[in-house]
């Protein structure tokens, strides 16, 4: 019995590893030296849903990837827990209620990297292979993107 449970756990881990291997890890980034090194998933969600969230002594300014990209879809699902349609309906509803708009979207990973590096308080996400030296990866709930448990991936 023990052997069987062990086998199942290993299989699930392998499957989880395989699943992570399908999408690229999306690393939450901010400007280097901003002082923000860790953020909870709930703050991250609130920040990207338009609520004021501070970090590193500054109000965080979220920047999204362009809609309908694997990075945006994966981030919305993993962080906001919403499908692209649900995200669209959410922001339409907010707009109708006069409660502010969605975070600015940037057209490419290069733009994100540039804005995240230069704009004070900026927070965004990048594929792991797009990280540059002037941006600061941020842990989510204390899990680094290098950790196998890190589960924010592109779709």
């Amino acid at each position: 019995m023990k052997t069987a449970i062990t086998t199942v756990v290993i299989a699930l881990c392998v499957a989880g590893s395989l699943a992570h291997a399908d999408g690229k890890k999306l690393v939450v980034v901010t400007a280097k030296g901003s002082g923000l090194t860790n953020i909870s998933r709930s703050d991250l969600k609130r920040c990207f849903l338009g609520e004021p969230v501070s970090g590193g002594g500054k109000t965080l300014v979220p920047f999204n990837a362009t809609t309908a990209t694997p990075e945006r879809t994966g981030f919305d699902k993993a962080v906001l827990g919403m499908s692209p349609d649900a995200v669209g309906r959410f922001w339409v509803d907010r707009k109708v209620r006069g409660q502010g708009g969605a975070p600015r979207s940037l057209p490419s990973a290069a733009h994100i990297a540039k804005v995240a590096a230069k704009f004070p308080g900026a927070i965004s996400y990048l594929p792991e292979d797009q990280l540059t030296s002037d941006i600061q990866p941020v842990q989510v709930d204390g899990v680094s993107h290098t950790d196998g448990r890190y589960n924010i991936v592109s779709q």
């Binding site: 920047f63 600015r104 940037l106 057209p107 733009h111 540039k114 804005v115 590096a117 230069k118 704009f119």
Partner: peptide, 14 residues
């Protein structure tokens, strides 16, 4: 605004 914030000419022109 973003291009100006990061002083990126290309972004601004775009």
């Amino acid at each position: 605004d973003v291009g100006l914030a990061v002083s990126d000419t290309a972004m601004v022109k775009e």
